[in-house]
């Protein structure tokens, strides 16, 4: 049984339907990517899974139906969502952002965990008292990821971390991401536009077009696919 099973997921905003019945699986320990162009419904997919837009269909997480649960309930089940545009809390310092990330935890190790994550992301450690809003895009993205890990998630929803970042910075973010997910054996559902990079890190991938899955398979297979190469890899 998969960790996450999405079946026939449909969602939209008001009268406008965006998703037309998606099926997605994520296994334990896996990093799965959903590729798609702007407006294909990537962000909506994640928002529907984490209960931020109303949706129909079925989302099973750890064998339990979770569609309709609120983000804070999902957080309690170990699912954490890093929103698009990084979603750092700009008026708070780096340390405070991390503390907010751990706010739902009841244990007493939040403060020591904050230090741990500042060590894992040294660039954040150097800026621990700086306001999040005044940092560079790459630093904010790392902060958003580190903050999500503060809730000790088993499963991470990650929305387009490459958005607005320079290629070198994007690569650094992905490297860090791979290290920490491996360390913490966290499963990840990533949505990305940057197929080239994402497929190097992911185990499997789905291709989303206008709200429908048009292709799926192991990452190497997708990398080799001619249509993907044309559409997303620019080869």
């Amino acid at each position: 049984m998969s960790l996450l099973e999405v079946r026939d997921l449909r969602a939209g905003y008001g009268m406008v339907e965006v998703l037309f019945g998606l099926d997605i699986d994520v296994d334990e320990g896996e990093l799965v990517v959903v590729l798609g162009a702007n407006g294909s419904g990537k962000t909506t997919t994640l928002r529907a899974i984490s209960g931020m837009v109303s949706a129909t269909g079925s989302v099973t997480y750890k064998g339990q139906e979770v569609l309709g649960k609120r983000p804070d309930q999902l957080l309690g089940m170990g699912m954490s969502h890093v929103p698009q545009g990084r979603g750092t809390i700009n008026a708070l310092s780096v340390v405070d952002n991390l503390r907010v990330g751990g706010i739902s935890r009841k244990d007493s190790e939040v403060d020591s965990d904050v230090e741990l994550w500042l060590e894992r992301f040294p660039r954040l450690g150097e800026r621990r008292d700086q306001l999040a809003g005044s940092m560079s895009g790459g630093e904010q993205q790392m902060l958003a990821i580190a903050r999500a890990f503060m809730s000790k998630p088993e499963f991470l929803l990650l929305d387009e971390p490459s958005l607005g970042l320079a290629p070198l910075v994007t690569r650094e973010v992905f490297d860090r991401l791979r290290d920490v997910t491996a360390d913490t054996s966290t499963s990840v559902l990533l949505v990305e536009q940057n197929a080239n990079l994402a497929l190097q890190f992911a185990a499997r991938g789905y291709v989303l077009e206008a709200g429908e899955i048009v292709m799926s398979g192991p990452a190497e297979e997708l990398q080799g696919d001619e249509a993907i190469q044309k559409a997303y890899l620019g080869i």
């Binding site: 957080l75 809390i89 405070d96 907010v100």
Partner: peptide, 23 residues
């Protein structure tokens, strides 16, 4: 305090705060 931190977080970015489990 944790409550104060949560209030500041909500004021700055309520959506992200909700994703972090702040009510």
């Amino acid at each position: 305090t944790k409550v104060g931190l949560s209030m500041r977080a909500v004021a700055s970015n309520s959506e992200s705060s909700a994703l972090c489990g702040v009510s």
